[in-house]
Every structure is written in structure tokens, then in C-alpha cells.
Design a protein around this nucleic acid. Sequence first.
DNA 1: TTGACTTTGACCAATCTTGACTATTACACA
DNA 2: TGTGTAATAGTCAAGATTGGTCAAAGTCAA
Lengths: 155, 155
Amino acid sequence: MQRENISDIIEAYLKTILAQEAAVEIRRAEIARRFNCVPSQINYVIKTRFTPARGYIVESKRGGGGYIRIVKVKLTDDQDLVQIMRQHIPKRLRLRDARDLIQELFDNSLISQQSGNLLLAAMNHETLGILDQGTEEHLRSRMFLAFLDRLRYER
Amino acid sequence: MQRENISDIIEAYLKTILAQEAAVEIRRAEIARRFNCVPSQINYVIKTRFTPARGYIVESKRGGGGYIRIVKVKLTDDQDLVQIMRQHIPKRLRLRDARDLIQELFDNSLISQQSGNLLLAAMNHETLGILDQGTEEHLRSRMFLAFLDRLRYER
DNA sequence: TTGACTTTGACCAATCTTGACTATTACACA
DNA sequence: TGTGTAATAGTCAAGATTGGTCAAAGTCAA
């Protein structure tokens, strides 16, 4: 099955590098040439796949000698992660962002796999879908904040 | 033979694959073409035959490179309690009843303390309180059903 | 006839791709 | 020192490519 789209392929390529190095530094045009796509495609990949919710920080510089650098953040203090997340939960939380956040919590050993799965079930569109979209996302945000608060007390 | 409807045929086709692989990944339009039906028929088949209660998880993605993936999950050995609970969840679930049910799950070692706490946070009145009482209790019921379905899976 | 299940199709939503236009930076050179 | 130019990256919106939803119409057995 090779119906993968270019974005996924580029994502995989970058993650291959990140699996070995703490950061990747690329030149946008070069990557675009390598994967035979327009340069702005790289921005799309970064914006959708290397988000803060997934634990990435992206820096760049334009002009001669310009670059894009992707860094995988590794926090040493778990309490910080909860705090930081808490401060950045928007009033309305989309399902895909919630997924990423839960994955982050799991990756950092703050919740078990079971907990993650159950939370996902709770915040799923299947479950909340009886609400209008605005209310659904608002409620998802509230639920996530409640989780995080509970996580803080647990420790 | 000639009595079979398309939905049954598509169901059988997918299950043939699932008998050999742990998951099927399809493109909706392609399957629809193969069986000479409209694409939304595939959604109907999935919704009626590949439900969580029957041990399937369905994921999908739209847009370029989109897909529908059906995963057959292993059911846990001991699920009597889950089954019984599932059959008795009312359309509207009050918080105090939800508490008791979660406690029951914990007492029977079906969920960890962490999971229980997080679920409680999710279904709390603090969290769901922005809804009117009817909606709140209805949603709590839906959430609980979603939990129970998840609990039946091993992963 | 009725009610459950199936089939269809119009319309909706999410995701990816592309390209025109914009913003920044380094460097050469007046 | 100032300024123009080449080299880079960023933004945004239109278009393409998928799957999702819903309700009306069809089918069939009790």
C-alpha cells in the first residue's frame, strides 16, 4: 500500500533524524526539492505534525544561511509538563489536539495506557457528538483541565 | 445466494481479510466501486457491523491519503461485570450512580485508581455543569458506555 | 399495514497540495 | 555607513482529494 501522501513521508523522514539527534536543521528549499514538492509544503508539515502539543519547538531564520530547526523537547520535571499544558489549553479543544496531549502525557509516563485510552474514549467525538461543535470543544477543554488538575493532586 | 444484500457481502469481504490480518485499511471510494454501491454504504456497513460491542475499533482520515481502518481487538477474559454493567446503564446517569459504578470497577480490579480518579474528574458536575441537567446526565451515560466498551479491549 | 433494515444521493467537513505574494537576512558595494 | 539585491523562509487562500452525515426512498417479513 503506497498511497501515503507526501506530508506523511516528509514527517517520517524528519522523525527518523530526530530519533538519533536531539534536533534537525534543514533548509526548506532543499527538502522540498528532495521530495519533489513546493517549499510551502514543508511549512504545512511542520505546522500540522511538529506542534507544541506534540512536544516540539520550531525555530527558523530567513535570508542567506537561513534554516528551519526542529527540537524535541524533553522535560525533566513532570510537574512542569502539567503546568505548562494547563496554561496552554484553549477554551475550545479539538479532538486531534486532545489526542496529541494525551499521547504526550503517556510518553512522559504521567498516565498509564489504560488511563489514556479511557480519557480518549471520554473525549471522543463519538461520545460528545450529540452537542453542537462549539459546546463539544468547550466541554473537551473543561474535561482536559479537570484531568490535569487531578493529576496535580495525585502526586 | 441471491438473497444476500450488499451490506452482508461487504461485511463478509472485510471479515475475510480480518481473519488473516489484525486490521484492514481501505479507501472508501475504492471499495464502493468494487461492490458497485455508493460510498456512504460503506459507512452503513461499518456502523452496523463493526461496532465496539462486537470488538472492532474503526479509525479514519479524510483528505489526500485518506483511509478507513478497521481493527479487530482481543477481548479480555473476564468481562462479565462489564457486560452486566453495560446492560444496565440508564439513558441518564446521575453523578452519584456514576461514582458507585466507578468504585465497583475499581473494587473488581478492572481499573486502576488513577483511571478511576480521572474518569471521575471527567464526569464530575464541576466539569459537565455548563450543560442543562438533562444533557449532563445523558452525556454522562454516553461517556460511561464508551468507557465500558474500551475496558473490554486488552490494548 | 407496519416496522426494521437497507440503499441512495445531496450536502458537509477534514486534510493535503500548490502557488502567488510577503517578510527577513546576509552581503556586496557605493 | 547606507542601500540594493539575492537568498531564504512565512502566509494565505483556492482547489483537489478524501471520508462523514442525514434523511428520504426502497425492501421485506411478520
